[in-house]
């Protein structure tokens, strides 16, 4: 256990430092600016739209449904797949480290980076929404808190899923995009119980449980069938834990054949 923790810790802070100055971080930062930019444009140009409307619409339709999974995919899939792609994984796997420490250490660094970025992006989005001049509710705690909590929870769960995806497949970005948009995007918006198969459903349940009535104005959001908060949190936690456990099991056994 000591070897696992010390290796994971070393990989965590080494990767966090590498990540901060990488091209991937720049791509992530640009992606994170999209939702605040959209909120700024809508707030500036939409004369009859109030701050709350801007925040919930951009927050739900763009930040939660699009930016969150894409950011988590770009950052999360790098956990192991980047080492394979860069052909440096040989150096790590020819050392006496427990292999799952590579996944956990690097994913933890990605998590810190991603959550910082998502929090900043969401706060900017809310600040930009507050500039709207139209009539309507202000951006209050009932909008701020559920959006922030859902985005951060989603960042953790999605990034773990995509990190583990990188342990299983060679091109996690392509498979992850398919998952995020073809699978989640489709099922989460079907008016059926299949919604419960998606991460989005539980994130929406969190928003529904914590949020103000302003959220019900978003088309497709108002639904009587969301899970209560404890069940949603428990499910998200379970998915996160199972994904990491599966990834740890797989990385301990998988061969990573890199070409010269």
């Amino acid at each position: 256990m000591g070897a696992f923790v010390s290796a994971a810790w070393l990989l965590f802070h080494t990767h966090l430092r590498r990540l901060a100055w990488s091209k991937r971080a720049l791509v992530c930062a640009l992606l994170a600016l999209l939702a605040p930019l959209a909120a700024f444009l809508v707030a500036s140009l939409g004369r009859r739209v109030g701050p709350a409307d801007v925040a919930v619409h951009v927050g739900f339709l763009l930040q939660l449904q699009v930016i969150l999974p894409v950011l988590a995919l770009v950052a999360g899939s790098a956990a192991v797949a980047e080492e394979v792609e860069d052909r440096t994984i040989t150096f790590l796997f020819s050392r006496p480290v427990p292999r799952p420490a590579v996944l956990i250490g690097r994913w933890s660094a990605i998590l810190v980076f991603l959550l910082t970025l998502l929090a900043a992006s969401t706060l900017l989005l809310l600040a930009a929404s507050a500039r709207a001049k139209g009539h309507g509710d202000a951006v209050d705690a009932g909008i701020r808190e559920p959006l922030l909590v859902a985005v951060l929870l989603g960042g953790a769960v999605y990034s773990a899923l995509f990190a583990v995806l990188g342990v299983f497949v060679k091109n996690p970005i392509i498979v992850g995009l398919g998952y995020a948009f073809a699978f989640e995007g489709f099922l989460a918006n079907l008016p059926a119980s299949t919604q419960a198969l998606t991460i989005q459903f539980y994130l929406r349940s969190v928003v529904a449980a914590l949020g103000s009535p302003a959220w019900n104005r978003v088309e497709g959001f108002a639904s009587p069938s969301f899970d209560p908060l404890p069940k949603a949190l428990w499910t998200l936690g379970l998915v996160l834990a199972l994904a990491l456990a599966l990834g740890a099991w797989r990385i301990a056994r998988r061969e990573f054949v890199v070409s010269a």
């Binding site: 590498r18 860069d86 052909r87 040989t90 020819s94």
Partner: peptide, 13 residues
């Protein structure tokens, strides 16, 4: 053991 792989890969930063 020490392993010096063939692939020309290092942590560039």
């Amino acid at each position: 053991v020490g392993f010096c792989p063939q692939q020309d890969a290092l942590y560039g930063e």
